[in-house]
Design a protein around this nucleic acid. Structure first.
Lengths: 265, 265
DNA sequence: CTTGACTCTCCCCTTACTGGAACGATTATA
DNA sequence: TATAATCGTTCCAGTAAGGGGAGAGTCAAG
């Protein structure tokens, strides 16, 4: 029978944290004095809080830890740790790619004094109308993979053949990483049906972005600057053509994307 | 002159985020309509928000980004990125050590069904009184390095020679990672003065922990279990002797620490 | 003039706690 | 036994970086 202070000193978890765990139901004291609310812990409970601390070191969230404690199963514990390992490994890989990008930027700063000087060549084109098969949804940026997967499944089911690059159209003027009105699609030879339509944006300006999907914003900026300089205004939702993307087995740094704005003077 | 929605769509930053940046003063619209509060952004501002987004990719906090924007200096920018690189590299190293620990634990689970079974041998000893030179402070766990640094500086100034391992005494019963009443010290041959005193904990139980400093709690648990089993109670603040620590140029996994509780029946 | 899209401010919610205030209970000392 | 120090309790507010939504005002097109 240990008071909360004694228990805290032994398990090296702060009193505040112990009270919080009690409050959220993650870890309750062995006995609570009904009169004054004092919490009392048993020595065997040290094992349990030790496990919690260990899992916290392993970057599990408290709900995840609660799930593990509820199962109380060695198999499940091992599986959870393994999947968390993969999560951490992915995070390390991402951080390493950030490190590489930082290194390149430092070199660029030392050469040019700034790193925001990507040179985009903006051109205009009048797009011929195309027949496209599309899926339009409210979705987040992270759902692109699933959306293109569903699109391809739909193509297969209706026997349509793609004859051009994949594309997406951003129908929301405003951008929201979590939830935007996005249409993903691909040009098809012919055919009709619910998800097949004509796409005729007319006069557009566009630029080619080479690199990963997460820094398109530079290219959008270049296009906006160009439009302002030339006196054009946007006349429709922007769209992207994935000339060389993740389906072509190249590194993200070699992806090629064309970004278009329909325009009018 | 772009509305917040148009600007958001081009720079790929959500409207909510733009309003938040305005609120905290990180990035303000070029013009605000005084009557209705509408925000309007200029095309040249795209460069600035692009820089902000880039720095956010690089894991800078918003105050850090604000500092960089305020300086507006390529030297400072490069230096900031370099120091953030080191920070990320350290974090990767830590995550990799977590991965290694997880791997060991998985193996242990597969062998034994659990990983909480460190075997500590608990012994008793009656400590002879020692003369120690100490520093006692309210400090956090992270301040140990600084505290031992100050201790050594004080030793040097008063011409005292250490003749035993470093130690620390936890005067707060309760544990608080951020702020505890901790005394760090070392045994000295002789001498007197403000920071020199006799340390006589008397009868103690102790166990030896091999490994990094951040999982002492297993050892504390083992000691508490032993005391309960043998019918002893704690009679003073616990202390740790750093038999082989960070000063001896070995890996954290080879650190040797003895953890003591003064006890009485 | 109406409608629908856009924008505004304001408030609450998120994680895993930490800090403090106000107050009651226990314990060590005088 | 009286008092003071320590320990415990609950409740409230705050963190970083916004997200979700309500309710109200504004804008442009038809």
């Amino acid at each position: 029978m240990l008071t909360i202070g004694e228990f805290s000193g032994i398990c090296r978890v702060s009193v505040k944290t112990l009270r919080y765990y009690d409050q959220i139901g993650l870890f309750k004291p062995g006995r609570v004095n009904g009169e004054n609310g004092y919490r009392y812990y048993e020595v065997p409970q040290l094992r349990e809080i030790l496990l919690i601390s260990r899992l916290k070191q392993y970057r599990f969230s408290l709900p995840e830890i609660a799930a593990i404690l509820a199962k109380n199963d060695a198999e499940y514990l091992a599986a959870s740790i393994r999947s968390k390992q993969e999560e951490i490994a992915r995070e390390i890989a991402e951080q390493q790619s950030v490190l590489r990008a930082m290194k390149q930027d430092i070199e660029k700063i030392e050469r040019c004094g700034t790193f925001m000087n990507e040179a985009y060549t903006v051109k205009t084109v009048t797009m011929q109308p195309k027949t496209i098969c599309t899926l339009r949804r409210k979705m987040g940026i992270k759902d692109f993979g699933a959306a293109f997967g569903d699109l391809c499944a739909g193509l297969g089911k209706r026997g349509l053949k793609p004859c051009g690059p994949f594309l997406s159209i951003y129908h929301d003027e405003e951008f929201d990483r979590e939830c935007s009105d996005i249409e993903v699609g691909v040009e098809v030879d012919s055919g009709s049906g619910e998800h097949v339509r004509t796409f005729a944006p007319g006069l557009c300006c566009f630029a080619t972005h080479i690199g990963p999907y997460d820094d398109f914003s530079q290219c959008y900026t270049a296009l906006a600057e160009w439009m302002e300089g030339e006196g054009y205004t946007v006349s429709g939702p922007p769209f992207e053509l994935y000339i060389k993307g993740c389906e072509s087995n190249v590194l993200p740094s070699a992806y090629v994307t064309e970004i278009y704005f329909p325009i009018t003077r």
